[in-house]
Design a protein around this nucleic acid. Structure first.
Lengths: 214, 214, 214, 214
DNA sequence: AATGAATGAGGATTCATTCAT
DNA sequence: GATGAATGAATCCTCATTCAT
């Protein structure tokens, strides 16, 4: 949404700082300085510090959700669907680690009103996972996960990527994605060797959504 | 170590608030009020807000580390060792979700000097996981994990428990631990059905370390 | 250098209060109130209370030094030079008694970093005295003062003016200056009647430097 | 007055710290620590921080006054009297530089009530100087000093010793005293070479009053 | 005599935000 | 669009002092 270069600078600075120090650990002056704007000018671009946070979070989730929907629509096999969800989630947390870390950590910094909008988005996204797992269970491909334990475990595992993965390290994105997919499918699986998801399709979507090559 | 009731009240209030709002999101007045002490009195018991945080984090890790060492010493089978590590980690994050969440989220709020002490502790703990996985790989029981990808994935998955698990929910601690152990062993395993760890031993250690029945 | 009226008000209030109660005896709220600014607004104009002090001290010494250099450049006779130094020093401590008292008393309130800058200035100024006395000694006009005893004695005597002299009292600035010059020259002298310095020149410089008529 | 060793430790610590950092620059905890007493215990020995200051100041002046009276009683020649006053004052400020610095700088830190007692003492002491100078003037030995200018100048000069003189430096106390006496007598004198005061007598009094050899 | 515990008031400084220019 | 100035409320922390033990 942010087309104005100043808005972009502000948003990027905010993402970086919020991720590094946490919402409450970043002052408006620090943010303004990082965005090369005066503190007063900042308020031409943002409603408030909190709204800025909410916007960042919402948009990050929006991208993830749209990517996930794009990847799973018209896919019949739940294993393929889940594989794609995992791949996109992992890649998102690898290449957009700052945004996703903010999403994962700063919900608590939002007042109820703003929080709801973000939570709704997040729930919509997680619903995709839940449905996929349920479909797999109904199809006898996955173990059932009534209590969501497996879903939770996998989501946390995948989200954790944002905390430790570095694009500059030795592990390639490709490897990362396929390893995680593997773990996910096996932990849900019935023992049979699961198929690998269509990586080409995922690559296209990642490129389209986050502008990054995988 | 905290025997004084006031100290305990302060520590508990700090854990609860830091976990809920983040270190920078909690004011000293709020903390004092929650601990039923005047802001000035607070400083008879703590060196500074930051030291309080560091103490909480260090002690939480210390408990986890000692429990983990207790559980793995003299255990030969790497699968058994890892199963116990997972079980203890998961249980710790379930019954001490506040402390562990603080440990996981607030490292960044510590200035370098205090941070080092905590990081050293954390690294010592994670080293246990690394060694265990390495032993399993050498024994041909686990897939090798040179880059630590699997270790990271599992640790994040297990730590995530603190974020979503509720002791009041439907999932029992028992189930939680065994499910996670299962996932962990299977994601590292070579396909054979892994053994379940000695739950009785783990229960004893948990009881001893955190005073909670599993 | 302070052209902004608010800056001036703050500076003047600080000088008055620091002189009256000492740096540590003045609170930021008290200072703000005296300057008719809110405590928060104060910090638009100063870096910190300590920097404000350092600025005041440095500027006061800067004025004194420039006046002294102006007065002694191209003067050959050491007696004339010393007479002018004494006159300017005494007048400065009489008409700017607050600033100079702060300079004399509050060096200890400055942290090493800020202190150095002020001390360097002060040393540069006292060097003028030392050189002048040395020149006089070499010319056989003054007793030698290897150990700086006489210089110290005279400087303390002259600086003391800030502690007791009142422009509203009976003693006129004229008298004050000539009496001190007299004492100074006689305490350094070899017994011969010393000449009085060029008061007109000194008056001009005083007017120019501190804007006060003598 | 202070015979109790703890009292002495407190008093000495206070003198040292007040001299170094100023009354308001020293906290009660810092003082207690320096005196090796707990902050609470401190209050068994002092009424309040301010009373402690007042006591120190008063006692320092009391010693100086008694020494001065001892030295000038039954001395007829005003030159001799003044010489002794200067000698004692200078020596006091050299060997008791901390106390005297506190006396000179911290009057402002005393509330009116406590201040009066100290000021009265100080005035009594300065009165000795005034009387002596007046006597000398009446006897035609000194220039008259109606406005007290010379007295002020000399007192400030001599008190300044506490600010720069070090007993570990090159200048000996003997030299210091005689130089200052010389300057003082000459600046009051009518040109004739003034006599030197009875140094033996002064030495005895200094030894008796401050326990220091000159 | 000694001291841990306690505190209301205040220390310096920064907070997010507004507004007139 | 941009920003210097402004601020009430809050930041963490220390102050001098008291008191029960």
């Amino acid at each position: 949404m942010a087309v104005n270069p100043t808005q972009t600078r502000i948003r990027n600075a905010a993402i970086r700082l919020f991720a590094k120090k946490g919402f409450h650990g970043v002052g408006i002056r620090e943010l303004a300085q990082a965005a090369k704007v005066s503190p007063a000018s900042l308020y031409h671009y943002i409603g408030s510090k909190e709204e800025l946070l909410a916007d960042i979070m919402w948009e990050s989730l929006e991208r993830l959700l749209s990517a996930a929907m794009l990847a799973t629509t018209d896919v019949a096999d739940p294993r393929e669907k889940l594989g794609r969800l995992v791949t996109l989630h992992v890649v998102a947390h690898a290449v957009q680690s700052k945004e996703t870390a903010v999403v994962d950590n700063e919900l608590r910094s939002l007042a109820p009103k703003l929080r709801k909008r973000v939570i709704d988005k997040r729930d919509a996204y997680e619903q995709l996972w839940a449905e996929t797992i349920e479909q797999g269970a109904e199809a006898g491909l996955f173990r059932s996960d009534h209590d969501g334990l497996a879903r939770r475990a996998l989501l946390e595992m995948c989200s954790g990527v944002a905390r430790w993965y570095s694009t500059k390290g030795e592990i390639k994105l490709d490897t990362l994605a396929s390893e995680f997919t593997d773990i996910a499918l096996r932990s849900l699986g019935t023992g049979e060797a699961p198929p690998q998801p269509d990586m080409d399709r995922c690559r296209t979507i990642v490129k389209y959504t986050w502008g990054t090559k995988v």
